[in-house]
Each structure stands twice: as structure tokens, then as C-alpha cells.
Design a protein around this nucleic acid. Structure first.
Lengths: 168, 168
DNA sequence: CAGTTTATTCGGCTTACTCCGAACAAACAA
DNA sequence: TTGTTTGTTCGGAGTAAGCCGAATAAACTG
């Protein structure tokens, strides 16, 4: 009974991860591969992931690359057992989120902010309504940038605490 | 010179919005339509948006629907001037973000959390390592849920202040 | 060395998305 | 009523993405 039940529970959670992956702009296969790695104690090689997931070798190769780039899994080249590369899941979800925010959202905000600033600099102060609109945008984006850079230094528990204890 | 310069500045910012739209999973057209509405004082009808953007009527119709659903623009039926529906941009970016988090991210987290809880309930306590893994997941997701629901009550300035003044 | 195992790259198939134009529907104007 | 304006829906063309299998490359084993 034990192994069976565990497999069912695992499968449910992994399916949920597939779905989440789609919501956040990754492929279903990425969700599954991450999920399988999430539950495995030991690092897995590509052939092992092929066995576990049923995906083609090439798919595993491509998806592991993007998962590594995004920071969801880690690659370790273990020359040891003859197998060459192995992957483990980054299980600290909070770290993953911080990474994503830092890598993508912050970056996105920064380039937008630069565009806004350039547009603003080149625009006479009195040109309504554009000047006002752009000014508003800049303020918001500067707030966002500051918030994100602050959040990147918090743990989840700290952030929660900071919000709960804040008195307006 | 004035109108010309303003048009250039507007165009730059709108192009940047097109790009952001893509990053966040919307189409380029969605970014442009939002951008055009963002800078216009008065609400615009679909034919006017066709003129301003160059997109086909059907495209405007479809994209405005999704933009409305997401909360980026608002639809008002003005029976007044013969034109039937008109759109305005929601310019408070912070509200938009809160909306998105509430509608999509919170929802996503909630369904995931439910799945995790079900899997956990149905799993004997001593079934390592699954039980531990699922327990970790649940904790993180509960933190996330709490953080998001707290953030939804903050303004951007308040959030910034809360983070800046928090002392560990 | 040849043979085996592993990882990446390439071309192709299928599916999904974006956008368009045409057809249709609904409200108004004469 | 007929004609006009506006909005939605539908089918299709072009394009991008996911995944596969085969070919290739690179490292180890005998």
C-alpha cells in the first residue's frame, strides 16, 4: 500500500506543478521534470529523467537547460559514476521567486524606466498631457523598483512579519 | 515642434508597453492598445482605436475584451453619441498589479495549496520522503498566500515604507 | 583501437496563438 | 422600411512553441 499511495500523492502534486508551470510561462514538461526532481532524494541524470517522465531525450536536454537558466534546478557534473551531468531541484521556492524577480521582473522594470526617463528628458515640461502621464508612470516604476530591490533582501518569513507588523 | 515631439515621446513609451505586454504573457497588440488609451484624455471607441493603432476591427474587439477581463482597461457603454462602447485605460499601475495578483497568482496558489493539502491528508505521516517534501511545500505556499493577501491591502508607498522601516 | 553510454543539435510534425478580412448581428437614422 | 454605423464571431494565413526521432559529438570502457 505504502509505495502505491506515495506514488499517487506524488503524481497529484507533480500534475499541479505542470499546471503552475504553464501559468508562469513555462512548458508542461518543465513542470513535470521539476516535479520529479523535487521528490527525488538523489540527483538524476538525463537518461533517468527519460525513464521517469517518458519524454524524449532531446526534450529533457532542452528543458533542463531552460530550467537551469531560470534557477529552478541545478546542474552538477559528476564524473564519478560514468554518468556525466546530473540535476537536482532547487527546493527553496522563496529563493526561486527572488531569483525570477531579480532576473526578469527587475530587469524589465529597469529597461522600461530608462525608456520613460529618456522620453521625459526629451519632452518640454509644459507639453500636456503627455508630460503628466509620463511623470506618473515614472513615479510608479521607481516605487516598484525600490520595492523589488528591498524584497530581494528579505526571507519569506521576514517579509510576512514586516507586513503584519506595519502600522499605518 | 510640440506635437511632433510629443508624438515621438508617446510612441517610445507605447513601444515599451508593447514589449512589456509580451513579457507578461499578453500580445503586442494588447500593449499598443493599452498604450494608446493610456495617453488619450477621452475614452475611445473601437473605430477610433482602429484609426489610432492600424489594427483590424476584429483584433481590437478581441483584445479589448481580454484587456477588460484582466483589468487593464475599462469599458463604458455611452449610448450618448451614437457610439456604443468606449474604453479608458486604468492608469493606476499599482491597482492593476494588485488585481493581477489577486485574480491570477492568488488563485493559482490557492488551487495548488488545496492539491497539496489533499495529497498530504491522504498520505501516512511516516512515508518518507514524500511527507516531508509535501510538508515543506505547504509551509511555503501558506507563507506566500499570507504575504499576497497582506500586500493586497497596501498602497505602493505603504509597502515601500513598511519594507524600508522594518528592522530585523 | 572499436564499442558503449551520454548530451546536444537539427529537421520535421503538430498544436496554439496572433492577426486579418469577411460575414453576421444589432442599434440607430432616414 | 432601407441604409449606415458599430461590435462580435468565424475561418484562414502566417508564425512561434513543444515535442519527437535521428544524426552528431563527446566522453568513458573494454
Amino acid at each position: 500500500m505504502s509505495e502505491d499511495e506515495r506514488a499517487v500523492a506524488r503524481e497529484r502534486v507533480i500534475e499541479s506543478m505542470e499546471q503552475s508551470a504553464e501559468v508562469y510561462g513555462l512548458s508542461r514538461s518543465a513542470g513535470r521534470i521539476y516535479g520529479v526532481l523535487y521528490f527525488f532524494e538523489e540527483p538524476l541524470s538525463i537518461p533517468e529523467l527519460v525513464d521517469e517522465t517518458g519524454y524524449a531525450k532531446s526534450t529533457i536536454s532542452n528543458v533542463t537547460r531552460t530550467l537551469t537558466r531560470v534557477g529552478l534546478i541545478r546542474r552538477r557534473s559528476s564524473k564519478g559514476g560514468g554518468r556525466r551531468v546530473q540535476y537536482t531541484a532547487e527546493r527553496e521556492v522563496w529563493f526561486i521567486l527572488q531569483d525570477v524577480f531579480q532576473q526578469y521582473v527587475q530587469r524589465e522594470i529597469q529597461t522600461t524606466l530608462r525608456t520613460i526617463q529618456r522620453a521625459q528628458a526629451q519632452l518640454p515640461d509644459d507639453s500636456e498631457p503627455e508630460a503628466e502621464r509620463i511623470e506618473e508612470l515614472r513615479d510608479t516604476y521607481e516605487d516598484l523598483q525600490e520595492i523589488l530591490s528591498l524584497v530581494s533582501e528579505f526571507t519569506a518569513a521576514e517579509l510576512r512579519d514586516a507586513l503584519e507588523s506595519y502600522d499605518r
